[in-house]
Nucleic acid binder design. Structure first.
Lengths: 197, 197
DNA sequence: GGTTTCATGTAACTAGTTACATGATTTA
DNA sequence: TAAATCATGTAACTAGTTACATGAAACC
């Protein structure tokens, strides 16, 4: 279904508090499933009520108390059930694609700047991923178990980001640079107006 | 922000009813932004109230009446504003990635089947896209304007689907086929139980 | 005579985001 | 002394999904 199972995967590896889970999500699983701490707390509560996880209060000195959750037997079987269950490939959403599709109705130079921005963002992420690949997985052929699974997800991230960067480059190469907002402005005069007022 | 602007792009090309927009979304923009008719009707209503579009009732015989929406001046400037405005690259979500990350806690054979299913789905979509590419855009170098923009979005779809198929192949090549559910079952005995009951 | 197409909607729900709040401790 | 880190939450909101409802016409 969503966050629940991502949390189950993370907690199966090692138990942790909501805060820790939020931090872990910055890496690894977070490439493909991110969440804010607010949502994580809410979902953890629900999972606790459903009996998938059990929270144990841990008192700390020097820092605030926390609630450490572990996966219960019911949680483990739920995770196994969900992994085996066929799921739909979720619809992908790209605002940038919508913007490109609507390029004729906006400022060309601004759109090129947007595409460049996205290209850079994705390129940066890609570099981070490649660094992780080099550092943490120098010998992929030797991997097995969770290490291998982590690596495969990372490979997915690298493929996605590479694809995105190349797509942005293709757009920039194809979209004419000069002539700003030509379409949008020239069309404004002869348009039959309706409503609005 | 989302659907609003996708609808503005679609309505800018040509006016249409909610029903028609839902059908159009099956193609083109729908590669990267899909929506159900219920949501489309709701958003159209809101856009009408905001003055971005104007609806005109059209009586038909032989089939139900419909409301045809056109983009107003305010709608056009909103679209132009949004295209120029920098936006965040939206978080991508892949249930399959979460499943792969949790492979140690589920049935290996079932997961392989899932990955294969996704691979096939994406491969099918890819074939559809390639067909469109061949049929509708035989000479990409000659394109300009909306035709070019449509083509670029299609190229994005092709890249994404190609990347996904290749990723699935990489997973299938790396994930050992035999030994079903080894991890999940062997772990079930020595686990310290908490909660649940 | 049954399904698909055209056409629009309501109601209830699930998921996710944004803003705000608190308060001690450690680091710059 | 200001900011970041640790830690948990509430409240209000936006976006999106699922289920249900209606009804005529065209297609098989």
């Amino acid at each position: 279904m969503g966050l629940e199972h991502a949390l189950l995967v993370s907690l199966s590896e090692r138990s942790g508090s909501g805060y820790e889970l939020a931090r872990r999500f910055d890496k690894s699983i977070g490439f493909f499933w991110n969440a804010t701490h607010q949502q994580i707390y809410r979902v953890l509560k629900r999972m606790d009520e459903a009996g998938w996880i059990a929270g144990e209060a841990v008192t700390q000195d020097g820092r605030p108390d926390k609630k450490v959750y572990s996966v219960s037997r019911a949680g483990r079987s739920e995770l196994a059930r969900w992994i085996a269950e066929p799921s739909e490939p979720g619809a992908l959403r790209s605002e940038l694609a919508v913007k490109v599709r609507g390029a004729a109705h906006g400022d060309h130079a601004a759109l090129r700047a947007e595409v460049t921005r996205h290209r850079d963002r994705h390129h940066k992420r890609l570099e981070v991923y490649r660094l992780i690949e080099k550092k943490d997985f120098p010998d992929p052929a030797a991997l097995s178990g969770t290490g291998l699974h982590q690596y495969l997800v990372l490979r997915g991230g690298i493929r996605v980001e590479t694809g995105f960067v190349e797509w942005c480059d293709e757009i920039l190469a194809a979209l004419p640079p000069g002539r700003e907002a030509a379409a949008a402005h020239s069309r404004r005069d002869q348009s039959p107006e309706k409503g609005t007022r």
